[in-house]
Amino acid sequence: MAHFRRHLGQYAIHAILLILAIFTAIPLITLVNLSFKDPYQFNVDPMGPASPLTFENYALAWRFMQDPLLHNIIVGIVSITASIAMAAATAFVFARFEFPGRNWLFGALMLILLVPSTVLFVPTYQLIIQFSLQNTLWSLILPYAAHQSLIIVVLRSFFAELPSEMFDAAKVDGAGVWQLFTRIAIPLSLPVMSAMAIFQIWWIWNDYAWPSLVANAPEARTAVAAVIFFNDGMFRPEPGAGMAAAVIAAIPMVILFLVSMRTFVAGITAGALKG
């Protein structure tokens, strides 16, 4: 009897999860479905399956989305490489060395974690305008590269927990600070770094308000901004193609997730909890 009841409980859980999953999936399935409809199918039966499939939507959307995707990739790679390189050096120094002003400086860095991005929004925009960086990829790369305090916190605790013996042995061999950093710290922390890199790229990919303000031109537009723009900014929105653009904007993240599932989940969890 108890056995049956436990089974019943499991079935009930599956049933509830199925309902939740259906509700979760409806909008996403709808998105993919709509992305294959032509404008007239939209009005006849919006929720029904697309038939015939309009692949033109994707051709149209791809023409508009290819540059924004490229921008995202460039901005992502450049800013993440820069921020992680800088943050790793800083975290390493703060974790393993004692020097004048150390606490003072570290406290100053940690203060940043308390500053919400809202107060920075307007003056950073002014900074971008002042230096004529509007509508260049720099307007995205530079502020994103400055987004480091989180990485520093995570890497610093990682470096601090490494056993001293490792470093002592290298020092005996005559390694200086730089060698300790590049030969021991960096190789050991690669998994952590890649987790943080994924968190950064996820965050950058999701950011809408900032790119839509400073990079609203074909030369620098990012993917998610382009999706909204493609739908709202044209005279005649092609609803199906707009949906296709949304799908295209999501695909790189899906691929990244599939190839690096563990790191992805770890990175986002760590980023969220520490932030």
Partner: peptide, 11 residues
């Protein structure tokens, strides 16, 4: 989680 929040809002 991989679907950008903007895309979700858009849908």
């Amino acid at each position: 989680i991989v679907v950008p929040a903007t895309v979700v809002v858009f849908v």
